[in-house]
Nucleic acid binder design. Structure first.
Lengths: 168, 168
DNA sequence: TCGAACTTTCAAAAGTTAGTGAAAATTATT
DNA sequence: AATAATTTTCACTAACTTTTGAAAGTTCGA
């Protein structure tokens, strides 16, 4: 397989993965492009390679920066801004996990906490079914929260390899 | 908070979570409704509670069954079909993990394996950057695969609690 | 075998999300 | 301060996804 073909395939695969994850396709494709680039790319180079508009490029690069997996770099003597992706994929994983936790799990925990305060006759089977379900889900969510916090905190690889050996 | 209000809030929250996960909102809402129901519900009851059409109900219930988190149940003496959700949230988690792995991780692993065969001058910095990136991602993906397989296989709660204590 | 009860399908409509490109804003250079 | 290069914004459009509801299909009991 030629490099050009391989690159295109990777960008496309990473894009679909992103799309399935609720990350927009273009954002994931820009990320893919930067991951395999030998050096920082400018907005124009990204536009060119992916055939997307300037506005789209700008928006999605900014979002990648928000997620903490892409950085602006200044090349001396150049007026343009250049962008580079975090290459350590463990760190990328951690950053994505942290971001998704903040957006998804944290709000859910809040809601579940509220919902535990439901009032009503404990003998009513509707109330009982509701309370039981919410309690179960709350425990699960809390557990996940604790686990993810540990993972996010422990960026060092010894941690991952410890878990890894355990699960192997 | 009254039960009706709490129910509505939970269904809405579960729906948004689903939407962010690329699961369609209605599918997640039906799932939420079944999770807190004290008994199996018919298609008509689901339509009624969520104000959705028959077609929509049918499609999404079928998809929930495909994911293995909802079951058809037959109530003696009744002609209609009734539906019930898996109430053990750990099992729900496992089923969803397994399904997503099949749809997302497995195809990605295949692609990455292919891409490692890229041909070209090892001294070309473009080739080198590509190969390095793909190798790193492949290792990460493989690792995740092994880990998830272990999680999926071990449905017993002792397993989760062992990991839990470790991470605590 | 017929018909009522129920489920499934599917084409069209509605709704949602992503992408464009030109204009506005910002920043750097002279 | 004027100009040029670059980035950011945003109203609009294009593409995609979901939902509807009526029609077709199926199942079951009499």
């Amino acid at each position: 397989m030629k490099l050009q073909e391989a690159k295109a395939q990777f960008i496309q695969a990473w894009g679909s993965l992103g799309a399935q994850w609720g990350i927009n396709r273009t954002m994931a494709q820009i990320h893919a492009l930067l991951l395999i680039a030998p050096a920082a790319l400018s907005a124009d180079e990204i536009m060119e390679e992916l055939n997307i508009s300037r506005g789209n490029t700008n928006m999605n690069v900014r979002e990648l920066i928000n997620w903490g997996i892409v950085e602006k770099v200044l090349v001396p003597g150049e007026r343009k801004e250049f962008f580079i992706a975090e290459k350590d994929i463990w760190k990328v994983g951690t950053a994505i996990t942290a971001e998704r936790k903040k957006r998804e799990l944290d709000p859910m925990l809040k809601v579940l906490q509220q919902l535990q305060k439901v009032e009503g006759d404990a003998k009513d089977k509707n109330v009982k079914a509701f309370v039981d379900a919410i309690n179960g889900i709350y425990k699960f969510a809390k557990h996940t929260d604790v686990t993810l916090n540990a993972l996010i905190k422990a960026e060092e690889s010894w941690f991952y390899s410890t878990i890894f050996k355990l699960l192997k």
